[in-house]
Design a protein around this nucleic acid. Structure first.
Length: 311
DNA sequence: ATCCCTTTGAAGCCG
DNA sequence: CGGCTTCAAAGGGAT
């Protein structure tokens, strides 16, 4: 309720492509007219060549999966042409990703027309009746690393929703959005399958992205958060806090002497500035068992900035 | 069958 | 307020 919301940018939620809340696209009466339009026109539909999240294929740039050539993100650099870089409080030039009623654009509130019954959200259903990807029904296991992506609308009484509140996942951040979009491509190029390895490559690629390119995802994530907030006004990340085993921490402590500030770096980098001048990054990622090399991966291609090559 | 690994970013938690 | 921890995705590998 601070960023884009007060911008009241009419174009804010007009776009359609979105990885997390595709259902919103369904009603996407507006066509992208902004910088991203060329991206959205690529029917996100399915292309789950590798089993992409059925609800996720909507990322505007998903088509990249097919661009085997090189990562030539046709993304219009005009995204920030005006501002140079994504500026949370002025990213209005970017078309939104969530369709909003022309009347409500900008002043999105849970009580808006398109979001009349927030109560329904509790059952993992959007007002449209479409299951929300961020909502995970409690199937006994809280973690649900791989929550049923095919989860079908569970017609459970709204009353019950209170009792068995589904797990609402955190909104994806910029990098997560980027991963969802590019993972398939990387897998195809590198013939890798291990997510850990893929993620390492993605991390390098992420740093290799230009600010403009990253800006796309930062804004996507920003909007996602906003939308998430609107969809689940009362939701808080703490709702899922402690649900996962914090083995990570244990490991970190253990490997503390090994990786040292590796993980910490991440924590320190939590600055809100998406584009630090001197990107520190690169934790050497000295993976022992993971092969993060891409045979024909453009990731390490000279085309990419030295960010990945580091050193 | 379940957890780990790995990444970055956002947010929660705690001192 | 600052630093640390947890979670988000994800899927083969390891246990």
């Amino acid at each position: 309720m601070d960023d884009g919301m007060k911008h009241q940018d009419p174009g804010m939620y007009k776009g359609s492509a979105y990885s997390g809340y595709p259902f919103l696209m369904l009603s996407d009466p507006y066509l992208p007219n902004g910088s991203m339009s060329p991206l959205s026109n690529k029917v996100p539909v399915v292309q789950p060549s590798h089993g992409v999240h059925p609800l996720t294929p909507l990322i505007p740039y998903s088509n990249d999966h097919f661009s085997h050539g090189s990562h030539s993100p046709h993304l219009p650099a005009d995204i920030n042409q005006k501002q140079g870089v994504h500026r949370p409080s002025q990213t209005s030039d970017i078309p939104g990703f969530y369709p909003l009623p022309p009347s409500g654009v900008g002043q999105i509130t849970p009580s808006m027309g398109w979001f009349p019954h927030p109560l329904m959200l509790g059952s993992g259903m959007h007002t449209t009746g479409i299951p929300h990807p961020a909502i995970v029904p409690h199937s006994g296991k809280q973690e649900m690393e791989h929550y049923d992506r095919n989860m079908k609308p569970q017609p459970e009484p709204k009353r019950e929703k209170e009792a068995k509140k589904p797990t609402i996942k955190k909104p994806l951040n910029a990098f997560m959005l980027y991963m969802k979009e590019m993972r398939a491509k990387v897998i195809a190029e590198c013939t890798l399958k291990e997510s850990a390895a893929i993620n390492q490559i993605l991390g390098r690629r992420w740093h290799a992205l230009s600010r403009e390119e990253q800006a796309k995802y930062y804004e996507l994530a920003r909007k996602e958060r906003q939308l998430h907030m609107q969809l689940y006004p009362g939701w808080s990340a703490r709702d899922n806090y402690g649900k996962k085993k914090r083995r990570t921490r244990e490991k970190q402590q253990d490997s503390n002497s090994d990786k040292l500030a590796a993980p910490a770096d991440s924590a320190h980098r939590q600055q809100h500035d998406p584009f630090p001048d001197s990107a520190p990054l690169q934790t050497a990622t000295g993976s022992s068992r993971l092969t993060t090399r891409c045979s024909s991966a453009p990731a390490e291609s000279p085309t990419y900035r030295a960010a990945s090559t580091g050193t």
